[in-house]
Design a protein around this nucleic acid. Structure first.
Lengths: 189, 189
DNA sequence: TGTACATCAGTGAACGCGCGTTCACTGATGTAC
DNA sequence: TGTACATCAGTGAACGCGCGTTCACTGATGTAC
């Protein structure tokens, strides 16, 4: 028997190992299926094989758990935007992020369910906003206020349509190339 | 005492008058506030001043009520699209519909909560789709598959951003004029 | 090497709540004669 | 004009359920000495 034998027997060890992460992942699966409002802490605990009171230990309450997910989402989005080269590629990155992380995206859009003033959340959100503003400022005519709104609406709408099942990349096409084709329809300045 | 005196006394009459409509309106208010998933039939009944079992009488169950709302929404959208002159004005009409009827719009986007195969629902939805296709066919290059997707994404995204509180018409501007300015950024064919 | 102790992670019972749905019922209304 | 009857609208009690949160607790682990 290995020195970790105790951990690999059929009966679960008392300590989970990484329950926090396991709960987050179970929550993401639940949100992807039924939306953030329908999230149930007891169902999470069941999926993680843990008592129903355990989630409170890590997140305090439901809003705490969703706040952790939203924060994680904004951090991922910020780093995706940071890596994207120019303005159009940021749009592509936005669509790709939303479709690859639909549960994070949905939670980020449901501020009512979060501790919306939690410092780590607002910090992550501001960080993502800064990356966007940088490239908008670099490209847009500052007088035309509708231009950045149009750009944002286009990528936000495409992401929504894909997530809601109304639009799908064609054969041999991925989300990024579809997003590139669609954002190509924005008028050049 | 007028001949309707009985109906205007403080104690409620046994028959409501138009309970069906009253329940739909209360449901729309609830959905606008908390989304379709959080709709509670008992809360509706409370607001309509009626016993909690009364809604079942009119709609069977919760999905039946939401299906009635979605059907009504598609009918309104279809007639708004029918009245809009050209393609761009249809886009404007889409955004205006979504922002003027946010609760209908939200329910229409939540097919999981509906009796999605109900004949009156599918009929209304198909009708709205027909109006859209007509004007898309009249204007778009049939080879460029991304063009209608871009148009739809733009108006859908703008509607979402307004509804989520991320974008607001400027001073002296209404939703329609904002939508016109934004859709003007689509590349002409 | 052993032992005492602090700390952390997870348990399980209990609470009170609001919900959707069912069901036999009663009040009100309209219609046929 | 009256009366019997069918139909419709809404009632209220009851059911079983899953939920979030609290709380005193126990198991497991790490650390100081």
């Amino acid at each position: 028997m290995s020195r970790f034998g105790r951990l690999t027997t059929v009966t679960r060890p008392y300590h989970h190992g990484d329950l926090r992460r396991a709960l987050l992942d179970a929550a993401l699966a639940q949100v992807a299926g039924h939306g953030p409002a329908a999230l149930s802490l007891r169902e999470l605990a069941r999926q993680a094989g843990v008592s129903h009171a355990a989630p409170a230990h890590h997140f305090g309450n439901k809003a705490g758990l969703l706040t952790a997910i939203a924060t994680e989402g904004y951090r991922m989005l910020a780093s995706a935007l940071a890596e994207a080269g120019d303005f159009q590629e940021q749009g592509v990155a936005y669509v790709v992020f939303a479709t690859e992380h639909p549960a994070h995206f949905a939670v980020m859009r449901a501020p009512d369910l979060l501790h919306n003033d939690a410092p780590e959340l607002t910090a992550a959100r501001d960080d993502a906003g800064r990356h966007l503003n940088r490239s908008v400022a670099a490209r847009m005519d500052p007088v035309d206020e509708a231009a950045p709104i149009a750009a944002w609406a286009l990528v936000h709408g495409l992401a929504s349509l894909i997530l809601e099942g109304n639009v799908r990349p064609g054969p041999g096409e991925d989300v990024a190339s579809l997003a590139r084709a669609v954002t190509g329809h924005l008028r050049a300045e």
